[in-house]
């Protein structure tokens, strides 16, 4: 598994312990006291490191190559999932997965960005960066969810919408803008969860939910830390600083009034225990659904408007 920079002291200590254990097993010397001391130290070190992650550390966790994706969570949370393809205009964009399935017996529409974990799959899925047809596929399924009156669950996990010639030619701006406008008016509950990186308009185009939640170590931002550093200080190497200044962690977004709930992650990040992470997400979705179930169609739209129309930080003079 990919080891992140801030985890190295932990890994180092763990290796030390294993070494001592091996020596003990070979029966040469009894080191159980030493091992016990080191294990206690490891426990404390892990607590220390993982409970005090800096914004840049969280960026690394959010980008971890083993971090669970939309399809991983669908696998754990949704029964009878059927994926549907294509926007019916141009092509099938594999950077977005869309389909229907059953969540605790309730039919739901699930839509999410999909990146790959290995290079080959990443290329097929364009690193989770959708083209316009991806957003149009997503909207088609959101409209179907409305027609058949079932809730929508979206998983946000993208560096951003594809920047490229083809995307511009086919109306990337229009595709995103249209989703923002149409998601706003849907008369079914929408629950959006940022599970990895939430990059700019390409993320938001699946994110106009009644409830918007974030996994603890995910990020949500107007621009990547590297992009911000290049733009603001003309130096992409200052990304680490930009990750702090731009306030992109789940705790920042909660504080800024953008998201509803931070979903806890297993120690070290979602990739350490996918099953546990899926359970945390499952509980959050269920409580969101319970809450939103009580609202009429009009109230659902009004509830969403209340949320989004208040976002911003202004004063009147």
């Amino acid at each position: 598994m990919q080891i992140l920079e801030f985890e190295k002291p932990i890994v180092h200590l763990r290796e030390k312990i294993n070494e001592l254990k091996n020596i003990s097993i070979n029966g040469e010397i009894d080191l159980s006291d030493e091992i016990k001391t080191l294990e206690e130290r490891l426990e404390k070190l892990e607590d220390d490191v993982y409970t005090h992650l800096e914004p840049w550390d969280r960026v690394q966790v959010a980008r971890h190559q083993e971090r669970p994706t939309t399809l991983d969570y669908i696998h754990h949370l949704i029964e009878d999932f059927i994926e549907f393809h294509g926007d019916r205009y141009f092509s099938d964009d594999e950077a977005i997965v869309a389909g229907v399935g059953s969540f605790h017996g309730q039919p739901v529409t699930i839509i999410g960005h999909q990146r790959g974990k290995k290079t080959k799959e990443n290329i097929r899925r364009n690193f989770g960066m959708p083209h316009p047809e991806g957003y149009r596929k997503a909207m088609r399924h959101m409209k179907l969810a409305e027609k058949f009156n079932r809730p929508i669950i979206t998983f946000i996990d993208t560096k951003g919408a594809e920047p490229g010639k083809a995307a511009e030619e086919r109306g990337q701006s229009e595709a995103i803008a249209y989703n923002l406008k149409e998601m706003a008016g849907l008369t079914v509950p929408i629950i959006s969860i940022v599970i990895g990186e939430g990059g700019s308009g390409g993320a938001l185009a699946l994110g106009v939910g009644n409830h918007v939640h974030m996994l603890e170590n995910s990020t949500y931002s107007v621009i990547s830390p590297e992009g911000a550093a290049a733009l603001l200080w003309k130096d992409a190497a200052l990304a680490q600083q930009a990750a702090e200044t731009m306030r992109i962690t789940s705790y920042d977004l909660k504080d800024l009034g953008v998201i509803d709930k931070i979903i806890e992650e297993p120690r070290g990040g979602a990739h350490r225990d996918v099953e546990k992470q899926a359970k945390y997400i499952e509980d959050t979705i269920q409580s969101s659904l319970d809450e939103l179930k009580a609202l009429s169609k009009d109230e659902l739209v009004e509830n969403r408007w209340d949320k989004f129309s208040k976002i911003g930080d202004i004063r009147e003079v």
């Binding site: 803008a177 308009g201 938001l204 994110g207 306030r247 800024l256 976002i311």
Partner: peptide
């Protein structure tokens, strides 16, 4: 930051 992004929605 993200508050600018949210003006889009």
């Amino acid at each position: 930051g993200v508050l600018s992004l949210m003006q889009m929605s």
